[in-house]
C-alpha cells in the first residue's frame, strides 16, 4: 500500500486545513449567512453598491468585516467562513477557484495553475508546490 494511504491518528491536525465543524459554524454564522444571501441577484447588487451597509445588515464580526474588506480568504476561513458559501462572494469579486487557491497558498495565479497541472503529470502535491514556490 502506498504511503499516501497511511493516515496518522485522526486527532493529529491536517496541515493547511481547517475542518468546518460546530465551532467554526457558530463563529462564521453571520458571514456565511451573508454569502448565502448572494444566491439572489438583487443582494449581490446591493453588496456591490454599498459593501459596508450590506455587511452591517448581516452583523458581521469585526474580524469577518476586515477579512472581507481585505479580500483575505484565509482570514474569512479563520473567522468561520465556509468555502461552499464563500464561493458565492468570490463570484461577486470576480475570483475563480484558482484565484482563491492562489490567494490562500501565496502563489501567483499562474503558479497555482502550474501546480495543479504538475500533479496531472504525475508529480506529488508536495513536489508540485515546492516547484511552484521555488521554480
Amino acid at each position: 500500500m502506498p504511503d499516501t494511504l497511511t493516515a496518522p491518528p485522526p486527532t493529529a491536525s491536517i496541515p493547511g486545513t481547517v475542518l468546518f465543524d460546530g465551532s467554526a459554524a457558530q463563529k462564521g454564522y453571520q458571514l456565511n449567512a451573508m454569502c448565502f444571501s448572494f444566491n439572489e441577484r438583487a443582494n449581490r447588487e446591493a453588496f456591490a453598491a454599498d459593501e459596508d451597509a450590506y455587511c452591517a445588515r448581516f452583523s458581521l464580526t469585526p474580524a469577518q468585516r476586515k477579512a472581507v474588506a481585505e479580500r483575505d480568504v484565509l482570514g474569512m476561513i479563520a473567522a468561520g467562513g465556509n468555502i461552499y458559501y464563500l464561493a458565492k462572494l468570490a463570484g461577486i469579486l470576480g475570483l475563480g477557484v484558482q484565484d482563491i487557491g492562489a490567494l490562500q497558498t501565496g502563489l501567483p495565479v499562474e503558479g497555482f495553475k502550474a501546480m495543479l497541472l504538475a500533479q496531472g503529470r504525475g508529480q506529488s502535491y508536495e513536489q508540485s508546490v515546492a516547484e511552484a514556490r521555488h521554480g
Binding site: 486545513t17 490562500q104 500533479q119
Partner: peptide, 14 residues
C-alpha cells in the same frame, strides 16, 4: 481541496 493553505491538494493514490 478548495480551502486553506493546502488548497490545490489532490491524491491519485487514494
Amino acid at each position: 481541496q478548495l480551502d486553506g493553505e493546502r488548497a490545490g491538494f489532490m491524491n491519485p493514490d487514494y
